[in-house]
């Protein structure tokens, strides 16, 4: 019974692992910290899995647990060094696919996003994942109106950060 549960969970997670990677991408800026957070989210998902009833999509359920872990449950790794190492490495890999201007713009955007607070990052994450305001408000526990207002403020803040 437990083996079946483990098997179904690991299989589902293997398929949807990019969601966790993306959460880690926004909340960490170092390879080791990324791996630490990935592991903690996986553990939290596994702990919560027996209660997963399947009435929501596995991915939707992952957003919630993933963000909760990143915002609330995870104790920041001591190894999290405030460098831009991660961005640098990653953008070198994909340099061949993009022209310099776009690459530069994206690099600045990720740097600006890393300067947002945890709640703002969660809003940006859900926005980038194309979640509607109903889901954003339900995931964070705020009203839809407030989610919309805050999202607009985050966009303005990002503009300011990019121009500074």
């Amino acid at each position: 019974m437990k083996k079946d549960l483990e098997h179904s969970f690991v299989e589902l997670l293997e398929r949807h692992q990019n969601i966790i990677h993306k959460v880690c991408r926004l909340y960490t800026n170092h390879y080791d910290a990324h791996n630490d957070l990935f592991q903690e989210i996986t553990i939290q998902l596994w702990k919560a899995y027996p209660k997963f009833r399947g009435d929501s999509k596995f991915s939707t359920w992952m957003y919630r647990v993933g963000l909760n872990t990143a915002i609330t449950l995870y104790r920041k790794s001591k190894r999290q060094i405030s460098t831009q190492d991660f961005d640098g490495v990653e953008f070198k890999i994909k340099a061949e696919h993009y022209d310099d201007t776009e690459e530069q713009q994206l690099k600045q955007l990720y740097t600006a996003i890393h300067q947002l607070n945890d709640i703002e990052k969660a809003l940006v994450f859900l926005y980038l994942e194309d979640r509607d305001y109903k889901e954003i408000s339900e995931t964070l526990g705020i009203s839809q109106v407030n989610a919309r207002v805050k999202m607009n403020r985050v966009k303005t803040k990002l503009k300011t950060l990019l121009n500074s």
Binding site: V10, Q17, F38, E40, I43, W46, K47, Y74, R75
Partner: peptide
């Protein structure tokens, strides 16, 4: 992103949480 294998994820779920 580096794709984690079935075995690597399985090993992770056996580890202990260090949540607050």
């Amino acid at each position: 992103f580096r794709k984690l294998s079935y075995g690597e994820i399985y090993k992770m779920i056996l580890k202990k949480s260090s949540s607050i």
